[in-house]
Design a protein around this nucleic acid. Structure first.
Length: 264
DNA sequence: ATGCCCCCGGTTCGGGGA
């Protein structure tokens, strides 16, 4: 089973890229972030025609997440628990049955950026990370294949950014941000990309500005975190960097992993 | 130190992203 995550930066602007990439990569489950449209405006039909069930949790203008799955969803639940007044569409959980009679649980997430530090945006990010850790601990107790995938807006380590000193006071790289991410993974998750390589330069995002793509000044901020029951079945993982070179691209590229769930 | 570029809503500019 191939599971992917991609911040598309507007699903309507990126529909042709999405359909091309689905055809090329053939994922079974996809987590989308920054869909930037209300549920009624989500381009369901062309995605369903490509063979996917669609679950959406959107809002006007900003944020918005969606799950695509070749197999039907057993459950879909929008929203991260813990702060009822939080109205950002940043989280969507789904459960999909596998061929072997088991199931995989997927959380699609768009973690707050947190900049500029010094405003309410950064404590909101930190609270969101605390809420995510509480949710994750609850789900890990189920001891099932479980994947939390999305745009974490976190640089886990210095090797995930070309110039870490320049990012030392940024919300994506502050020690408190990294500590919370480390605490989350320490609950028992495996970073799918890091399971296969500790290399620097495995970026998933390149800013539109300042020629970042041309200079390969990227960031690794999109992650797939695997529960032990998922990590035991990890067969491959990758970053579809070439998608950033397409015409009018998202600033993020797809990240994916293969889990041998059918064999379980 | 700030903006570069891109997207949205809604109109020709401001908010947001990272």
């Amino acid at each position: 089973m191939r599971i992917a995550t991609w911040n598309v930066n507007s699903v309507k602007q990126r529909l042709d890229h999405l359909l091309s990439w689905l055809q090329e990569r053939q994922p079974d489950i996809v987590c989308l972030q920054e869909t930037k449209c209300v549920d009624e405006a989500f381009p369901r039909e062309p995605i369903e025609a490509a063979g996917y069930n669609v679950a959406v949790h959107g809002q006007k203008t900003f944020n918005g997440v969606a799950l695509l799955s070749r197999r039907p969803f057993d459950e879909v639940t929008p929203g991260l628990p813990g702060e009822p007044e939080d109205d950002h569409a940043r989280f969507l959980e789904g459960v999909v049955s596998t061929e072997g009679g088991g199931a995989v649980r997927i959380a699609c997430l768009y973690l707050p950026n947190g900049n500029p530090v010094g405003t309410e945006k950064y404590p909101y990010k930190l609270r969101w990370m605390d809420r995510l850790a509480a949710y994750a601990a609850d789900r890990l107790a189920l001891e099932e294949p479980f994947v939390m995938a999305g745009d974490y807006n976190v640089l886990p380590a210095a090797r995930d950014v070309p110039n870490p000193d320049a990012w030392s006071s940024d919300a994506l790289f502050l020690p408190q941000t990294r500590d919370k991410f480390a605490g989350l993974t320490a609950l028992g998750f495996t970073d799918a990309i890091r399971a296969g390589s500790d290399a620097a330069g495995l970026y998933t995002f390149w800013d539109y500005q300042a020629g970042c793509w041309q200079k390969n000044m990227g960031l690794r901020i999109d992650h797939l975190l695997l529960s032990p029951q998922a990590a035991d079945r990890l067969a491959a993982a990758g970053i579809d960097k070439h998608v950033r070179g397409w015409d009018k691209p998202s600033d993020h590229v797809p990240v994916w992993c293969d889990l041998a769930l059918e064999a379980a």
